[in-house]
Design a binder for these strands. Structure first.
Lengths: 350, 350
DNA sequence: TTGAAAGCGGTACCAG
DNA sequence: CTGGTACCGCTTTCAA
């Protein structure tokens, strides 16, 4: 717990002034400080294991090279952590560090968390959520460059750039995958309306049918919820006691947990997957989709990419690197990615 | 992006000096500053929405009221986020804020992350991991009060206090639950040796058998791994084509994902849960154990409590509140908690 | 009761 | 090429 060496310590040891130390260690020694003084300074710095005090630097420069990440519940929940991972990748590669604060879905804490971050001179702010959702942008975010990841400004005149997954296309391509396998009766367990992602995925499902000119039965769409038991119950309703001719040949789920429930139901009913029933997940949750039996075909959310894109946008704004002026575009959409595994197959002939 | 008000701004507006502002706003006005000056100062501060600059404060006080949390992968992984939630609860209640940095399991990044945190004057450090594990304590952690959560110092002479779940008792009580239901042939899918939790849970399983005087078949224990497919395969080996008399009446799993796999296998084999087979999980993962069909009986990891206990220990050390001297105890064990749901029931009579 | 000044650890300007 | 000095925003001591 001994105090760290300061620039003054280095200066003394090298027999020069603090200013010289500052110049040399910041690479502006040549032409300002004698060659041999430079060497002595560098040697002294090394011996004392000197590194400048970040606090003092921030105070002086009014910049900290720290990006504050505000999470609604990404840290504590099992979901979407890779957004932060991706954001951190980019930040580090550009010489910034990120610090995360999680409000555990208590939006009342947003303002104070942001105030805390701002008080500590963060150079920028990123708001990241579990699941696509509209948010009330906390006032403080407008005081420094900021960006939204996986969420968007609920106001009619959005102030901040946001980066979100392209759920519409995701829903469409998931459906297309099944249509291409020959399925003509595809049920949809569609999550619930509390998430804006759900209706988008439903719309994608509709669009795919329309584009393929396949008639669509609205009674095949269920706003079932998001959890395993919901998937189980939904599947039971669709499959239990229904003849092969009348049941859907595929069930598309709005997330992987629903798909787990559906798989469970199929197993209980003695239906083989994918021979009798194809099951499609969404999200491609690590260690769920890839480890299910059979492994789940799923539409992967581009979490890492969202984090990377959002952080890139943010740092460009901070460093004035963005090509056009700020606010040119307000939205970046990142495509989802189909991951084909073993739970989907050709439609059974009947 | 207009600059924040400083103490000087407040002083000017109130027609006093900066020192007066400082005194009053820190509650040491009485007896030092005239009553009416105090009022003017407070009014001015309010009007200007003044809050002191945390950076300047840290520089001045050499303390920041910030706790750095270093995570191996708690943020990006789906697991154990509630440790951080619990830690944050305590920190906030005691006037500290936490900032989290996640190294995504790259221990090479530990040192630099800690250096960053230290450079920013964090008053304390907490290292938190996904899953119980021994760690190499990064040097820098010894320079400020620090604590380990869900992990422990791998060295023979541990320097830091750690808070971990009591896995031995957890394993024992999980087994006792099944024994009490009359099960006498309990298989164990035990995770893998890469986690120190696995052998402890196995030992608990053995202890419970010994205490109940129930003979134990070592060939019922499988180091199966941790994922759904591992549970599925393990269960198939135990159950498929085995007569009711020879198969175990209960399968205890080292985590909930294994239990999902087991449930899936049981469903495929036409076995009812819990009538024909009881299934026990571990971890009590949110939105898995509670939403399975049937809902999983599980041994809950006390994640939140671990975080709370660790942060309490840490803040006590920082504020010098700890009753005994530092380093009195080096370990805190937090008990796991049995959550009884629908996947376990009385052993079938045969 | 008040204000001036020092100092936390740096950087940057400027005179020598 | 060098060292002195002001300043970032705040607290604290000390003299008036």
């Amino acid at each position: 717990m001994n105090r760290k060496a300061t620039a003054l310590d280095v200066a003394k040891r090298a027999g020069v002034s603090r200013s010289a130390v500052s110049l040399v260690l910041n690479g502006r020694g040549d032409g300002n400080v004698a060659k041999e003084s430079q060497d002595r300074i560098r040697a002294a710095a090394l011996e004392l294991n000197y590194s400048p005090n970040a606090i003092a630097l921030s105070l002086r420069n009014q910049r900290s090279r720290v990006i504050g990440i505000l999470s609604d519940e990404v840290v504590v929940s099992p979901f979407d952590g890779n957004i932060i991972g991706g954001a951190d990748d980019i930040a580090r590669s550009r010489g910034f560090v990120t610090v995360v604060m999680d409000t555990e879905r208590d939006t009342a804490r947003d303002a104070s968390a942001i105030e805390t971050l701002l008080d500590r001179q963060v150079d920028g702010l990123m708001y990241v959520t579990v699941g696509l959702k509209p948010i009330e942008v906390p006032q403080g975010m407008l005081r420094v460059p900021s960006v939204l990841a996986n969420c968007y400004d609920a106001h009619p005149e959005p102030q901040l750039h946001h980066v979100i997954p392209d759920e519409l296309t995701g829903g469409r391509e998931a459906t297309e995958h099944l249509l291409q396998l020959g399925h003509r009766d595809i049920a949809l367990l569609a999550g619930s309306e509390d998430s804006p992602a759900a209706p988008l995925r439903v719309q994608g499902y509709r669009d795919a049918h329309a584009a393929a000119n396949v008639p669509l039965r609205s009674d095949r769409i269920f706003m079932a919820g998001w959890d395993i038991d919901a998937g189980y119950r939904g599947a039971m309703k669709l499959l239990d006691g229904v003849s092969a001719a009348e049941r859907p040949t595929a069930i598309m789920c709005a997330n992987d947990r629903l798909a787990v429930g559906v798989t469970l139901a199929a197993a209980r009913l003695g239906l083989r997957v994918p021979e009798d029933l194809s099951i499609m997940g969404y999200d491609d949750e690590t260690r769920i989709a890839d480890t299910m039996v059979p492994a789940l075909t799923s539409m992967a959310l581009p979490l890492r990419e969202i984090g990377r894109a959002a952080m890139t946008k943010l740092l460009d704004a901070i460093e004035g690197t963005d090509t056009a002026g700020k606010g040119t575009t307000v939205e970046t959409m990142v495509p989802c990615r189909l991951v084909t595994r073993d739970s989907t197959g050709p439609a059974p002939t009947r």
